[in-house]
């Protein structure tokens, strides 16, 4: 991106508006569809899906349970019934296939809000703010489990914005909007990508599932990269891109292996050179559209 330009301009120019937002549009559609399915019951009396993200029953047969909340009840010392366990296994297997933090990018109701906060923060040119250590979210995750074990209650659910907001949308909001507003303001004024990028234990938990997940983003045409840096600018976890995109010299895989990649596909959208694509984890294929021979010395000099 050129100085003063917003990320994605080159991609719009090169690929057209739709292609430059394809995965973003699809992602918002899926987020809305998930919520819509849950709302069909209370709003239209069509009970395809009952419950909420913590646990649901689809078509009166398919149980789905959030594995994280189930782990929390387990550490309180409660042994859940089979329906919940089965539901959690199905969900966990699903995210092992499609990428753990795909939950963040494609399902979580907080994601559009923190994305909006990030967008606004960029627009307003807000800089600085609170910094967190890498891995803070894992501390938070561990803390939620310790507190659950010590108090014998699913304590984190008293504060969890993710379940509170989704439950609020489906069962009635109460003051849950205040929690959402707090997350928004925190991300806007206090810390860049603070909540989803550093603190949220739900994201951390699903990230752990993603450490082995099959579906990944691959910088397959990394040889074509023109260093516009747009992908870094739009990625919610920019640190995950570097090893794959710039790791050719160290013989690193072009596949983004970090568990923190949310599989949102924004990097695919925003790259005017079509460097990125979805791929399976073991798929290390590389190619190039331009057929440009890679000349790292030249690029380094530039």
């Amino acid at each position: 991106m050129k100085p003063g330009q917003r990320p994605g301009q080159e991609a719009i120019a090169a690929k057209g508006r739709f292609a430059a937002f394809k995965w973003l549009i699809l992602r918002r559609a899926v987020q809305a569809a998930v919520l819509g399915l849950f709302l069909l019951g209370p709003l239209a009396g069509l009970w395809l899906v009952k419950g909420n993200l913590a646990s649901s029953l689809t078509l009166d047969i398919l149980p789905l349970t959030d594995p994280y909340v189930l782990v929390q009840t387990l550490v309180t010392g409660h042994l859940p019934e089979t329906a919940a366990v089965l539901g959690a296994v199905i969900v966990a297997l699903f995210y092992v296939l499609v990428g753990g933090r795909a939950y963040c990018a494609w399902v979580c109701p907080v994601n559009p809000v923190t994305d909006a906060a990030h967008w606004l923060r960029d627009r307003l040119g807000l800089k600085g703010g609170m910094q967190f250590r890498r891995g803070t979210r894992y501390w938070v995750l561990a803390m939620t489990l310790v507190v659950a074990a010590l108090t014998g209650t699913v304590a984190w659910e008293l504060a969890n914005p993710v379940s509170m907001v989704f439950r609020g949308l489906v069962f009635g909001m109460g003051f849950a909007w205040a929690v959402l507003a707090a997350v928004f303001l925190f991300d806007l004024f206090v810390s860049r990508r603070g909540w989803c990028g550093h603190l949220c234990p739900v994201g951390a938990f699903y990230g752990l599932l993603g450490a082995v997940s099959l579906l990944r983003v691959s910088a397959r045409r990394r040889a074509d990269c023109n260093d516009c840096m747009d992908c870094y600018a739009v990625c919610p976890e920019p640190q995950v891109i570097n090893p794959a995109l710039k790791g050719a010299d160290q013989g690193a895989s072009p596949v983004i292996l970090s568990a923190q990649c949310t599989n949102c596909g924004r990097c695919i959208d925003v790259c005017s050179k079509d460097v990125f694509t979805f791929a399976a984890r073991p798929d290390r294929r590389e190619d190039s559209k331009t057929g440009a021979a890679r000349d790292s010395s030249l690029r380094d000099a530039a």
Binding site: K50, G51, T65, G77, H78, G174, F175
Partner: peptide
């Protein structure tokens, strides 16, 4: 410690009896 706040009990109650606690009420939220 056992309830995961899913609301499936609320959904299957044929009467307006059950509800999930909202944030701001005195009952543990959800």
């Amino acid at each position: 410690g056992a309830c995961i706040r899913c609301g499936l009990c609320v959904r299957d109650c044929p009467y307006p009896t059950l509800r999930l606690s909202n944030l701001g009420e005195d009952v543990a939220v959800g």
